[in-house]
Design a protein around this nucleic acid. Structure first.
Lengths: 340, 340
DNA sequence: AGAATTATCCAAAGCGCTTTGAGGATCAGG
DNA sequence: CCTGATCCTCAAAGCGCTTTGGATAATTCT
């Protein structure tokens, strides 16, 4: 069923039907009702591609999804997506996901923009320098980053968590407890969120006259396996760390296992703080020793990004261009005084 | 840059340019090369919406994503998606995700079909009866299910894991070990995969003259928290189970924690087998006591589904309509003889 | 050389929608 | 009864692409 058929059936012109459907004032209430009812009955749904072609708007936001094996089943990604989705569904938006191999991401974005399929583009996993950001900047399509590039230039729209501040605060707490030897289980080094977390930690240590030993820093995907392995290595060192910062609860899961296996007691022999993205499947409060965390909901970030993007497109937008969310420090049992 | 501009610039007609670009034979090699080069230089990318409108094909597959809070950040979903994506990227397909609140899913599918944005539809989280399947069946759009409805009718295309067989086999192993009291930590009751797993377990028990106590069956989302709580309840019962089947490693994670907390030894006091979807972030072999599992990669399923869907659209397809994958039983340390 | 192919290229229609610029009713006021 | 204003409705153009049915130029055959 298309517009023509529907209007023929109603004995009206396509114009009138289209206007009735889209809420234009030039059509009488009686007619509008008749049209609406007929559309309902016949199950008429406008063809999006045609609509898109005619209006230039598509109520859709695009995202390229890196389909690297390492990033594939990332629960962080899906958690974020679910927030985005929740917001999208409210406004009848959908997303177009263009999967791309990592080396082809730039082209994927170009294709996505040129395709005319999307009204706006969202980007995550920011690195530095990030050619994708440069591309978006020079294109005319609205976009929004989850994360920031490094440096203090704020001439692009983003939503980010204050990762530096989060780990700075976390480190401060551990320093107060008298810890001196810190380890860091971080995400992939190329991502700016990981860089900033490291910087936050180093800053706090620096203020206490300490430095972060490169041997006690680990960068990897944020899975429990990586956490376990890295932690085992850390614990095997002659001077093992007494305080650990983890970039995710998944890493922490592995780390805790290594700690248990080594016969150490979490919160006593060794303190740990993890960043908590509030993943539905892995809650820090449910660890055998509940985890102290810096918390910031990924899902909420997704929802907020959806909101901003959509509002921007609707022209409703009077949104801040940049947003920096503070993470909450939630103290639980995994942190305690440094052992003597 | 659009077709008209490009052809003007080349002094050719749109027809010729279009044909050159799409590999039709009616154009000389010299011209084709000239066109291709110009397209390259100007960065011309055909407008997908227009292409779609003209051809009816869009190289895109649609999926409605339930945006229920419970299902939101499901790592199973993203694991699957990553497989799908990997396959899609190979063939330059993309997906259109239509988020939908659970009570509106049917409409979301209808909209997606009518939108003309997608060439095929994929569905997961099959329930029974599943109105979505009925809808797809009666529509003319190609589709594919991940999972099956109940019963033995095979008149719709699907890819499923033999969940019944997997849990049957798992239960058999435990029965051989002399276990008599079984518990089941399952996914949401309404999903057919959960139903089938329960059936598999019951069948094995039935053959041994045993029955599954309803008090030792738990249905919930597959997160560690739910696993922990349910397991704690099970262990608090006067006659606690000696064997547990878990529908996911995330559930198992919680269950194991409860077991540890109760001071029981996994693989000795209590045996556990989990279904392993091969999530990147949670590997059963990395549990403190490595988990015996029934394994079937979700990601591989995603890839396979992408492959079938795409092949079907290309007409390349000579694919089986139905596929049932057997899960492998991988025995590790979490299973052992029933305690005396 | 003239006719019949064949190789190239083109004009125009059409996909389903929105939107502009007018035209036909309908109603009130003179 | 006629005029101007107010509603309502319509025909047609256009969004950017593919594709059908010719046309023109180049090539081959007799």
């Amino acid at each position: 069923m298309n517009l023509k058929q529907l209007s023929d059936r109603l004995g009206l012109s396509q114009t009138t039907v289209s206007r009735a459907l889209n809420g234009y004032p030039e059509v009488s209430e009686a007619t509008r009702e008749r049209v609406l009812k007929a559309a309902q009955q016949t199950g008429y749904k406008p063809n999006k591609a045609a609509q898109r072609l005619a209006t230039g708007k598509a109520k859709s936001i695009g995202l390229v999804m890196q389909s690297a094996p390492e990033i594939g089943g990332d629960p962080h990604f899906s958690e974020f997506l679910s927030g985005l989705a929740e917001e999208a569904v409210k406004h009848d938006f959908h997303f177009v996901m263009a999967p791309a191999s990592p080396d082809d991401e730039l082209n994927a974005i170009k294709r996505l923009i040129a395709s005319g399929y999307v009204d706006a583009i969202f980007l995550a996993h920011v690195v530095d320098p990030d050619p994708r950001v440069a591309l978006l900047r020079s294109s005319s399509i609205p976009y929004l980053l989850h994360g920031r590039i490094m440096g203090d230039t704020h001439d692009y729209p983003y939503l980010d968590v204050d990762n530096e501040g989060a780990f700075y605060t976390a480190a401060k707490l551990l320093l107060q407890f008298g810890h001196k030897r810190f380890a860091l289980l971080n995400g992939m080094e190329r991502f700016t969120f990981a860089m900033r977390r490291k910087i936050g930690l180093e800053k706090a240590l620096g203020e206490a006259g300490l430095t972060l030993s490169p041997d006690l820093v680990h960068h990897s995907v944020m899975g429990d396996q990586a956490g376990f392995r890295a932690m085992e290595r850390f614990l095997a060192r002659p001077e093992r760390p007494t305080a650990v910062l983890c970039a995710s609860t998944a890493l922490a899961l592995g780390a805790v296992r290594a700690i248990n296996k080594a016969g150490l007691k979490l919160g006593t022999d060794i303190s740990l703080i993890a960043h908590d993205d509030v993943l539905t499947t892995l809650r820090p409060e449910n660890f055998s020793v509940p985890l102290t965390t810096t918390r910031s909901s990924l899902k909420a970030a997704g929802a907020r990004i959806g909101q901003r993007l959509i509002a921007g497109l609707d022209g409703t937008g009077d949104m801040p261009e940049q947003e920096l969310w503070e993470a909450e420090l939630i103290v639980r049992a995994s942190t305690g005084p440094a052992p003597m």
